[in-house]
Design a protein around this nucleic acid. Structure first.
Lengths: 344, 344
DNA sequence: GTTAGCACTCTAATATCGAGAGTGCTAATT
DNA sequence: AATTAGCACTCTCGATATTAGAGTGCTAAC
């Protein structure tokens, strides 16, 4: 729906006032809006119309207006001016991410910490998906008579290690055999192909020797599965309890959502590339129906990878959140790419 | 202070009623207490006395009595009968811990999950302290041109891995030199001795070659430091928000405490062996002044190791919590000991 | 030391009231 | 046709009053 200029201006003013203060606003206060030189009666008419169209609502008959979720949606799509980030903020983000260490995981964890700090609500970040990754190399390190560590190096340069234990004494020769056979068979294969059927046929092809392999193969499968899946980092979730426009039930809902890794990961996996905003009922998950999510996918060498995301009540400074998330996402993707490229 | 039999009985009845219902109780309802055959007036006198002595208090003049923290303390020390755990609960705990995987970390994580489930509040568990651990063996695995993984095996059988990156090309010969030199120098040394002074003298003793070592030595120090420090797992912290006798402020306080790893770890490290109960102001940390902590240290081969702990409001089923925690601690210690012994 | 009786206190729930904010509608104006 | 002034109306919020009920502390008798 296209709105007349003046209606847009009034709608934006109401929403921005509400985002800033959390209070409804009425026709009289709106007269102070820059560039709006009409009487309060005229504004009242416009407000009534915007309310009838579903953009605004009144908490009760004689309060001012506040946005509906539909109103927020229109604002986010058509009215909102992208916030311009202060240079100091940009440098702050850059520095924090740069000084967070040598592992991609650390950068990504830091990303969620600063998103939470700067936007003032709960934040999430995820490691890149390993969908396209392949096995590069698998190595073994013996760590005890019955235990050994497996090191998986993927084509994208990620490294995962995994302990496993056998009931028999492990010998260097045995590990050598495992090493040669596994790498011959798996090098260059997609991580997703390292599954149970593979393990069974692989072990079977070794006859008697294959009987010694299950523990080792389980470790390989685990490592591949974990490299495929994304890790999720959460920060500042207690901040939700301090948002006064968030009733306790909604805050609980979000906290529960964050704690339930299954539905959380499912939700996150369905978020497409770029910057996405989900307001209230637009969220597919029931525990988020009263919240808003802003999520940006960062890219590694132009490939959509993991997410940086914040979550809070629908009363949200969307413009600021988008600007900060996009800045964090940009640096995160860039720094991880640099890290991985030197690893090759 | 020693209390007369009847006073003890009344005190216990008040506390147990309050723990069970969260409601104050008055002289009349107390007449129904098993084995207490006196009039309500007599009970009133006793209550007045217990209140004067500081064991009980009234939320307001005309409400019944509820325990003070001092009352809880007396109850916990002298009145509380240890709860007897149902066999099915014991088996449940055993099974959950047994089926949680091959790594000590997984057992310990599961321990906090079931503590939280069974006791219905937030739970914490920590991995064993590595205070007495020594370096057993250090190994290297090359993972890229510029990166390598270091694997640290401690005397207690714990394994930690760590990635590091150098600015120069890593060669197998170089790793061999590192490997031999490090193990020669560090095998059998306490983890705590692997610190910066050590790294400096070590690198210096290699002259020119030592200039290539800093990245590698940092990784070694990191791995040792991490093995020394304990990991902390938290479960069910959102349960705090559902405890109706916990005002929002206190719940927030505890959540904040749990999120601040520095003060949390400091607090946990100071908890001695055995089972400990801290009620309200007895807690050294200000954010816990309105909460209660029950913590049991599990033992590995008769050595005090990590903690299993629950945290909630001072209205707490202490008896049940102690029984469950001690059961979990027993199995946790036992299973980890088994795991480590076969690793040698 | 124990008990019955009773006046007293305090809370929590409910009702009543007035001020204030903001509205929608009507009629007049541009 | 759009805008505006004016006004009666509605609803919330906070303050105040009222009442029922629970539980007490105290006194005097047992």
């Amino acid at each position: 729906m296209k709105l007349a200029q003046r209606k847009q201006k009034i709608l934006a003013a109401v929403i921005e006032h509400y985002i800033a203060t959390g209070e409804p606003i009425g026709s009289k206060s709106l007269q102070n809006t820059e560039g709006l030189d009409v009487s309060s009666a005229t504004i009242r008419n416009e407000l009534a119309d915007l309310t009838a169209k579903g953009f605004l609502r009144q908490p009760h008959t004689s309060a001012g207006r506040i946005p509906t979720e539909y109103g927020y949606r229109y604002y986010v799509d058509s009215l909102m001016k992208p916030a311009v980030l202060d240079d100091r903020v940009k440098r702050y983000i850059e520095n924090r991410l740069l000084s967070s260490g040598d592992a991609p995981e650390h950068i990504i964890k830091t990303a969620s910490v600063i998103a939470s700090e700067l936007i003032g609500t709960a934040a999430l970040s995820t490691t890149p998906t390993g969908d396209n990754s392949r096995v590069h190399r698998i190595k073994f390190v013996q760590t005890g008579r019955h235990t050994s560590m497996l090191v998986l190096i993927t084509s994208s340069g990620m490294v995962k290690s995994r302990l496993f234990r056998c009931d028999f004494d492990i010998t260097p020769e045995m590990l050598n055999v495992f090493d040669r056979a596994l790498n011959e068979r798996l090098a260059g294969q997609p991580l997703s192909s390292v599954n149970r059927p593979f393990a069974q046929t692989f072990a079977a092809s070794f006859g008697e020797l294959g009987l010694l392999m299950p523990d080792m193969l389980n470790a390989v499968m685990d490592a591949c599965r974990e490299s495929l899946g994304t890790n999720v980092y959460t920060s500042g979730s207690t901040k939700l309890l301090y948002q006064d426009d968030f009733d306790l039930m909604s805050a609980r809902g979000v906290l529960e959502f964050l704690g339930d890794s299954d539905s959380r990961d499912k939700f996150l996996n369905n978020i497409p590339e770029g910057t996405n905003i989900y307001i209230g009922k637009e969220n597919s998950h029931i525990l988020l129906k009263r919240s808003a999510v802003v999520a940006t996918r960062y890219e590694i060498e132009n490939q959509p990878a993991g997410l940086i995301s914040v979550i809070g009540s629908t009363r949200f400074d969307y413009s600021k959140a988008v600007a900060i998330l996009e800045c964090i996402a940009e640096y995160t993707g860039k720094f991880i790419a640099e890290l991985l490229s030197v690893r090759q």
